Structure formats: structure tokens, C-alpha cells
Simulated assay, not measured.
Amino acid sequence: MTEKVAHFIFDVESIADGELIADVRYGGQGLSPEEAIATYQDELVEQNGTTFIPYTYQIPISVVIAKVARDFSLIDIVSLDEPHFRPHVITEHFWRGWEMYGQPQWVTFNGRSFDLPIMELAAFRYGISAAKWFKNDGYRSPRNRFTTEAHLDLQELLTNYGAARCNGGLNLVAQLVKKPGKMDLRGDQVQQQYDEGKLTEISDYCRCDVLDTYFIFLRSMVLMGKTTIDNEMQLVQKAKEWIQQRADTSEAYTAYLNAWRDWEKPQDKTVEKAKAAAESETPETSEAAETSDS
């Protein structure tokens, strides 16, 4: 029997809608979609030092979801509508899949501010119903920011809903648990990758972000007392084996494994250092130490 999916850990990569930008920001100027994007990015660099366009002007081009069981074990990872990556199909599969699997908990990193809003706006854009997500159930409503039953944003968990700042973001938190973090691509480079036709590379980047988020999720479950550190380490090892079994079919998995590091318990490191020091101690140094003590 297939194990029930309890959590959907996901990440979204998106591109700018040049026609929308031209209509909203530069109406009547006759800019092409490409020119509108370039003009807006120039403005953003001058204002904010980044070319990343706000999600309201974007559409999803890659959504990768990790299916995770109730015991937090990794079941599968899928890239929606691969290899076609059609935004309207991705959006349809995203919301219908959530319903089909019994509305598992969404798990994201900064998904409250970006990933879920862009998928909600995409559903609005393409005329897709997400009635169960938008239902009004008081405090337990799925979209209520302060209930994690429907959506656990790991960045909000770690910053107490923005009371502190997560400087370093996903990359930093992933590396705290010795996982690869950001490798060859950044979110603000996705537009260029898309323009160059590198759709699979975008999906691979998204896939690696989902893996990082999964391992951050596991440590967060330890933090919240929902599992133990020993069980987390076992789950990490099983997930590594899962990735290894699929490395031949995915460049993303190969790259992730090449950057892999194993997290070790701090006390284990201390013991190992003590053992190493004891083993390196020669009879002469031991005799000298005894003479000094006497």
C-alpha cells in the first residue's frame, strides 16, 4: 500500500510577464515585452540593487514538489508539467494535486511572501478554482498566517513571523545542517536562463532548492519536538540513498550529491578530537608530561 502523503514541500521558479509589464508600467510607450522587462530591471537595479521583478508581474515556469509521509520520510519528488513547463498546466496540477492527495500541509521557505501568493495569482489569472484553499474556517482557515496546519513557512518559523530577520536566507539555513544550499544559479538569474531556453536547468535548480527545504524541514521537526535528532539523521541517510538511486537520471541529483556534506553531532566531534589527540600522543610526550607533573 502506498504511504499517505502528509506534506508537500515545494518551490516555485518564475519569469516576468513582459506584456503585462509593458501594459501596466509603460502603457502607450510601444515597448516590446523584452524591452519592458529590460527597462523595469534597469529601474530595479538603480532602486534596489537587484533585477528581481516582483511576483505580481510574474508567472510560474517551474514548480517542484517533494511528497513527504507522516513519519517525515521522503516518498517522491516531481516537477510539474516537465518537460513542457506550461504555466497554466503547472498551476492546474498544483491545485488539483493538492486536493487529490487530501490537502497535505504545504511546506516552504519564504513561501508566505512569494511561492503561495504567486500560485494564488496564477490561479486567478488562468481561471482555476482553489475553493478549498480559500475557504473561510475562522482561525483554522488555510490562508491564516498564524496557523501551520495548512502551510508551514520555515522562514517564519525560524524568525517568529518576522520578529527577527533571516539574513542569509535558504542558503544559510541549509548550510547550518551541512547541505549544499545555493550552487550554480540564483533566483534573479532565472529570467536569463529562460530567455536562453534552459528550462530543464531551471527545473533542476528548483529541485535542489526543494531538497534543501526538505532537510531544513527535518531539522525543524527536531526543533519543534516532533521527532528526535537520531531519527532525523536516519531520515537524512535514507533520503541520500533515494537521491543516489536516481542520480543517473538527473543532473540535479548528481550535482547535489557532489556538494553533499554530512552533519555530525557536536558531541561526536568533541569525542573524535579527543581520540585523535590521544592516538597522536607518543610514549615520549606521555613521559614528559608525567615528569612535568611530578
Rank of each mutant, 00 (worst) to 15 (best):
V5D: 02
F10K: 00
D11C: 05
V12P: 05
E13P: 12
S14D: 08
E19R: 08
L31D: 03
E34Q: 11
A38H: 11
Q41Y: 02
Q41C: 05
E43S: 08
V45A: 07
Q47G: 01
N48I: 07
I53K: 06
Y55I: 12
T56R: 15
P60Q: 09
V64Q: 07
K67G: 03
A69S: 13
I75T: 01
D76P: 01
P83N: 07
F85P: 00
P87F: 07
E92K: 10
G97E: 06
T108G: 04
S113V: 13
L116Q: 10
E120Y: 12
G127N: 08
K132W: 04
D137A: 15
R140C: 12
S141A: 12
P142F: 03
R143W: 02
T147N: 13
H151V: 08
Q155C: 13
E156S: 00
L157T: 02
L157G: 01
G162D: 03
G162N: 01
G168P: 11
G169K: 07
P180I: 14
E201S: 09
D204Q: 09
Y205C: 03
R207L: 10
D209L: 06
R219A: 12
S220E: 05
M224S: 11
T227I: 01
T227E: 01
T228M: 02
D230S: 12
N231Y: 10
N231G: 08
E232T: 12
M233Q: 13
Q237V: 00
A239V: 02
E241Q: 15
W242D: 00
L257W: 04
E264C: 10
Q267T: 13
D268V: 15
T270C: 06
V271P: 05
E272D: 10
K273P: 01
A274E: 11
S280C: 10
E281S: 13
P283T: 05
T285D: 14
E287K: 15
A288V: 04
A288E: 11
